[in-house]
Every structure is written in C-alpha cells, then in structure tokens.
Computed example of a mutant assay.
Amino acid sequence: MRAILVLLVIVVLVGIGAIALGYVNVSQTKTASLPTISVQGGSAPAFNVQTANVSVGVENHVVQTPTVNVQKPQ
C-alpha cells in the first residue's frame, strides 16, 4: 500500500515538473458555456391550515409547603 502511494506521488511530481519545464503544453481549445434553460408555466402549491385555539391565562393559588428543620449532632 505504501509503495503504491509513493509511486502515485512520484507520478504527480513528474507531471508537475513536465508542465513547469514546458515538456507538456496544456491549452484551452474551446470555451465553456452554461446551458440555456427555459421555464414556463407552473404555480406554487396552496395550503389551508386549521389549528386549535390556545388561550393562556394566569391563576393565583395558595400552596402549603412543608418546612424542614435540620439539627446537627452535637
């Protein structure tokens, strides 16, 4: 596995060196262009949503809470 990786790195470095020294010339022969797209018709979807009514209120209540007494041992 390591030998394959080393071989791949060497091939890439040789390719970069060949391009840098002028042994390989890469030139663009045709320019790229985006495709033309035509959109016609169509409509957005419609939704009818019914939700429950939620009412929030405040009520006052008196709640008795227990008292706790802690006595340390002497």
Rank of each mutant, 00 (worst) to 15 (best):
A46L: 14
I16Q: 05
G22N: 03
T31W: 04
V11S: 05
A18P: 00
Q74D: 10
A32C: 09
P66N: 05
A46P: 00
I37C: 03
I19A: 06
N69W: 07
F47M: 11
V9L: 15
L8Y: 08
S43I: 09
H61Y: 14
T29C: 00
Q71S: 11
T67A: 09
G15P: 00
V26K: 01
A20C: 01
N69A: 14
E59H: 08
Y23R: 10
A3Q: 07
L7P: 01
T51H: 04
V58G: 01
A46K: 13
A20Q: 02
G15F: 02
P45Q: 11
L21M: 09
S27E: 08
G42C: 14
F47R: 05
V26D: 01
T51G: 07
V39Y: 12
L5Q: 14
Q40H: 10
V68F: 14
V68T: 11
R2V: 12
I37K: 11
L34N: 03
I4C: 01
P35G: 13
I16H: 02
T31A: 10
P66R: 01
N53Y: 06
V62A: 11
N48K: 12
P45A: 14
N48M: 07
V14E: 02
S38L: 14
I10G: 13
S33F: 10
T51F: 06
T36I: 06
Y23S: 04
A44M: 15
T29H: 04
S33W: 06
V70T: 12
N53P: 10
Q28V: 07
T36Q: 09
V26L: 11
V68C: 07
P73R: 05
T67S: 08
S33K: 11
Q28H: 00
V12C: 03
A32V: 13
L7S: 08
I19S: 01
L13C: 08
V49I: 15
A20D: 02
L8K: 06
N53T: 15
T36M: 06
A20T: 04
Y23H: 15
T51D: 02
I37D: 05
Q71Y: 01
Q40G: 06
E59R: 10
G57C: 00
T31D: 05
S27F: 04
V63K: 15
Q64A: 07
A32I: 10
A44D: 15
P45W: 10
T65H: 06
S55R: 13
Q64C: 03
V68A: 08
K72H: 03
L5I: 13
V63Q: 09
N53D: 15
T31C: 00
V11Q: 09
I16R: 04
L34E: 02
T36F: 03
